[in-house]
Design a protein around this nucleic acid. Structure first.
Lengths: 112, 112
DNA sequence: CAGAATCCCTATTGATACTG
DNA sequence: CAGTATCAATAGGGATTCTG
């Protein structure tokens, strides 16, 4: 993923780029719910199947973008925890609005 | 684009799929601002260059997803207007939250 | 003016195997 | 456990050309 100059001038274009990853919104949501969560547990809680390769890449992308924090414990077997960064935590209102709209949208599409 | 079963159970996954298009957020934003807008005018107001082919595809995708309404006037030269649908208009709070967060994010990244 | 039809090209994803 | 490396498959965007 490796993006540069993500911070342009337009908040919409910027947000869109940050949220490019296919699972980014749900990852942020899970981190917000869990507070802190380990890699494998995160993978298990994803709504659809995904390989750890994919999850790993998305996490790294979000980390590079500054949204999440990765904490590695020097032990064997390895233990790595993820949580939201400060700016990542501020994404919360967006998630809230998104959840409400998403539910309305789902309901609306079902009735058709 | 042509997506099926966009309405799953999870509002986040659903939203993410709807917003997949590289320009979807900005298009919705422009339609919200303009109310009603013609194809070429829409293209001119996009923040970055994009061909009409690409814009056309994104608009069709958003139309298929029910977010926007396309009105065609039977005249020559053709005149087509786009506006938000009812469910599309309800996306407004998300845009608002997104704009705020995007600005914060841009400011945060600049200072680093 | 507002597309549709093509082709090309790249980014992203998925699958698999290997590692400390 | 939590990755990395590699390759194959795909989707999405961009450019060009043609149309009523």
């Amino acid at each position: 993923m490796e993006k540069k100059h993500l911070f342009g001038k337009c908040p919409y274009v910027t947000s869109q780029k940050v949220l490019t990853g296919k699972w980014s919104m749900y990852i942020i949501y899970l981190l917000e719910q869990a507070g802190t969560i380990r890699f494998n547990e995160l993978q298990r809680q994803m709504p659809e199947e995904m390989t750890h390769t994919t999850l790993s890449r998305q996490l790294k992308a979000l980390e590079n973008e500054g949204l999440i924090v990765r904490t590695e414990y020097a032990q064997i077997p390895p233990k790595v925890e993820y949580s939201l960064s400060e700016i990542g935590a501020k994404f919360s209102p967006v998630l809230k609005a998104l959840e409400e709209w998403g539910d309305q949208y789902i309901a609306y599409m079902k009735q058709k």
